[in-house]
Amino acid sequence: MTATTAEDSREGRKRRVRGTGAVRHPDRKGRSPIFDAPTPHGLFFRYLALIIVLLISIGPMLWELSTSLKSKAEDVYTQNIQLLPHHPTLGNYGEVQNTIPVWHFALNSLTVAVINVTGNVIGATLAGYVLARLKFKGRKLLLGVFVATLILPAEVTIISKFQMITSMGLGNSILGVCLPDMIAMTNVLLMRNAFMALPREVEEAAIIDGANVLQRMRYVGLPSVKGVLSVISIFAFIGAWDDFLWPLLVLQSPDKLTLTVGLSYLNGQWSHDPRTIAAGTMMALLPILALFLILQRYFFRGVAQGAIKG
């Protein structure tokens, strides 16, 4: 106990000497080198904790991946747990294709996702810009209505939307799945907040230069909201790809299902082999994770700019 205290203070003194002056002049990010300098064993425990959390968060996915690669000859139920497949095979992925039209489902999911991204990017940008930058009668009231819709969870109105889609003759169709979420009110408000941050003067200069509304939005507004726009696109894509309850209600015929609904039927109804189900799960999981990995830089940057869904 005494030894550690002595050592701590000695080390503290050493560091204090090394960084004289830095306490009063923190660097650009407001951090002082002394307080933030990692000690070697502090760093060790930090990485240890990070690795434990890493195992918890992606361990289950890796286990599923391993199961999907195990051959029929391998006992997946054994108490003698095999982390890695003995003879890795893609056979289970072929089995999924033979059981369900998985590529067709994936194409359906992709269609829904692309339509949702396009709709949200266009619809939310236009409305967000107007609500943030243009003055007109009824703006405050309209904004209030947009905000009020946020307290309505999507599940509450899902029956009414279902009835509407069916009465429009769009039941059991991909268009029926896309339609309600093509412009989400949250995204309109997120875009509005993003456009609000733009300084008034810049826009006034553009008005004097004779730029019309669309030109101002395109050349003055858009460049400064790219971060938020990319977060909205990523969320819209993931939201559509992952959605389950709504397509489960709307779609009935087996050739029109999206990937999540198809998977829920694969599990138990069309297959009992955990290897096949694991392979199907991976076919839904890997594309979306890959896409996120490619775009994660824009995502975290956009989030830092204040694009967080509440």
Partner: peptide, 11 residues
């Protein structure tokens, strides 16, 4: 990022 359906199947 993963859908609730895929992670529920994994679990």
């Amino acid at each position: 990022i993963a859908s609730a359906v895929t992670v529920a199947l994994i679990w």
